[in-house]
Design a protein around this nucleic acid. Structure first.
Lengths: 363, 363
DNA sequence: TTCACTTTCTGTAACGTTACAGACGCTTGC
DNA sequence: GCAAGCGTCTGTAACGTTACAGAAAGTGAA
């Protein structure tokens, strides 16, 4: 019987055999997707055997395994996700939780593409779970965990003592954060070294002779706000430069607000001669504010900015830029969640990305 | 019995009752999510009745329906997606198919947020299915349709005779396209009126006295490329302006290429005195190319550009801008697929977005 | 009283998968 | 010669849901 099967299917499936199958499996309708039952019938084996053969279980004979896998490939078998999910609870889904008010241009697209790149080689699908500023950031996380609609979660806008992180750890739910926490909880993360960014930026400005520096910070409350501020402070004392406070806006504010506040600041007597901006989009507004009062980049003031897409040098060649690669972040975050799901230790799934300065392209 | 149930659960669930349930449903483990079985036990009804009561089927008594729905709400019942999907084939998922080489900034994020906004009020999840330039655009579509991993698909970069559209129509698979087709197939779409955009743009340039106009087009082969080119041609003859060919690059090319080609063009004798750019990011490069040869915006040349995020006026106030709202597109596209899934006619699910000029904000 | 019909509810089976507890035939050791 | 063990394979049950066929009780007409 088994040998017959091997002979029968080594070429390919005759029309009669297909009809027989449809009868046998009592499906009058047109073919439909092949299931384990289809393959079981074709090989003359039981569904259990087929199931095991396809996942290389040890108790299956070498020849049987090969035969089953051959047939499966030929008929284009794909496991039914709903079947697997219902039986095992495994969803093969990663949820990316995003804030719909995110200001940083290209953050969303790049991180999605990064995550996708990694997931493409796996059976995982990517589902996007958005929330707005009107909602508790906990909502989407709670939803996914409670309904079990994903096997892992990626979050951003991480806080030093992030309630979402506590929640997921308590429930033993795999996740990775974009940004670090500081509550002594071990979990996978990927972060950009914003401390190093700020230090680099201050040094650059200092080397240009700038002494009165202002910092356009990340949003209050997020971990990387503190990292940035700390790096700024450390480098100030290292270089002996001084800070001109600029706390009325952050990169989360609207372009109009940033522009207006910058102009206001630049009209003061003791105005800064150097700026550090934590986001590319914000820098556009910042520069507009500087120029609104008639000051000139590179002459009256220098600006160092982070950017996540390579457009700022087209805007003003005088800008000093440091790249943050969100696509890389997406890849790392995806690898991290998958790693945790796969049983690796959280500590081994943490990574930090080092700032890299960009030189202007020759025209 | 029914009345007992009503009384028992009108307050809330006593500890003993809960134990009883766990015994009865033979689950020793901690609670777990409530299922139909849970509610069936609690109300003393059959699972079938509960299932029907929750979806307001007509053959359920008024009181029973209310009782079931009350209990369901109380225990926080959520239908198990895998169960529904396995039984009915309905996934409650919409797949957004995206090209990972998309140049247009904010396209991805805005369209995702738009789609999400609409899906948020439904049981649908959004899954992102990306493909790279290395792949056949058909791949992701085929994958989703063949594996039945979504109930509907949203695609972009639509072509006049798009094979994906043919494929999905043949298979009777609900979808919506960002952009129109021209093969006489009726299907839901949302599109920006690029013909009108080009006409508006030419008129604007003509009104500024510009007579030799160049067009930076959308990618060849996409429907809106032709729409744009047609609008451009129509308005040229209307205004009597002439075209300076600029066909060596499109908005899909890299910034470097656009910049270089623009500079090259501007060094010619018969250089354009007006540009129309079909994308915001490309405009940055275009303007850089213009300025590379020492020409000045507003004096030597005027540029009209589409933009999808409000940053170009910060870049150069002299730019003439027309907004394209991708978040709106996302909303419309989501509404369209859902409508088709819900049985509405494809013809009734088509919409066109009208260009709107942007005036510079006062500093 | 009986029959037909309606209203409201119920049990069974099935979707595709995997865990589990065997079953079968062969070898091996005593 | 027999029990134990091994290597392969199998059937049954279950995950949570809904379609379907039907049952029980009540209503009304004859």
């Amino acid at each position: 019987m088994q040998r017959d099967g091997a002979v029968l299917f080594s070429g390919w499936l005759a029309g009669e055999a297909m009809d027989k199958l449809n009868e046998e499996t009592s499906r009058g309708d047109e073919a439909g997707r092949p299931t384990l039952k289809t393959i079981a019938f074709m090989t003359g084996l039981g569904v259990t055997t087929v199931s095991r053969a396809l996942k290389d279980a040890p108790e299956i004979g070498e020849e049987t395994r090969r035969r089953v896998q051959l047939v499966a490939r030929q008929v284009g078998y794909r496991p039914n996700r709903a079947g697997v999910r219902l039986r095992t609870g495994k969803t093969n889904v990663i949820s990316l939780v995003l804030n719909t008010d995110e200001q940083i241009m290209s953050f969303v697209s790049d991180i999605i593409y990064g995550v996708s790149e990694v997931l493409a080689a796996t059976p995982y699908h990517l589902i996007v779970t958005p929330y707005s500023h009107a909602q508790d950031p906990m909502d989407p996380v709670r939803y996914v965990v409670e309904t079990g609609s994903a096997d892992g979660i990626i979050i951003s806008r991480t806080q030093p003592d992030d309630p979402r992180v506590r929640y997921m750890i308590e429930r033993n739910f795999p996740f990775a954060t974009h940004g670090r926490t500081e509550a002594g909880l071990a979990h996978p993360f990927h972060d950009f070294d914003n401390h190093a960014f700020a230090v680099e930026a201050v040094r650059r400005l200092a080397s240009l002779g700038r002494r009165r520096l202002a910092l356009l910070t990340p949003p209050q409350g997020l971990t990387y706000h503190q990292h940035t501020v700390d790096g700024f402070a450390d480098a100030l004392s290292e270089t002996g430069a001084s800070e001109i406070p600029f706390n009325t806006v952050s990169i989360d504010h609207s372009m109009e607000q940033i522009r207006a506040r910058t102009a206001q600041l630049m009209r003061r007597e003791n105005r800064p001669d150097g700026f550090i901006s934590s986001a590319g989009a914000a820098t556009l507004a910042l520069v507009a504010g500087i120029e609104d009062v008639g000051l000139k980049l590179g002459r009256d003031v220098d600006v160092v900015s982070k950017q996540s897409s390579p457009i700022l040098h087209l805007f003003r060649p005088e800008l000093h830029l440091i790249n943050e690669d969100f696509r890389l972040a997406g890849r790392e975050l995806a690898r991290s969640v998958l790693g945790w799901i796969g049983g690796k230790s959280p500590q081994s799934l943490q990574s930090l990305s080092v700032p890299r300065a960009v030189e202007p392209a020759a025209p």
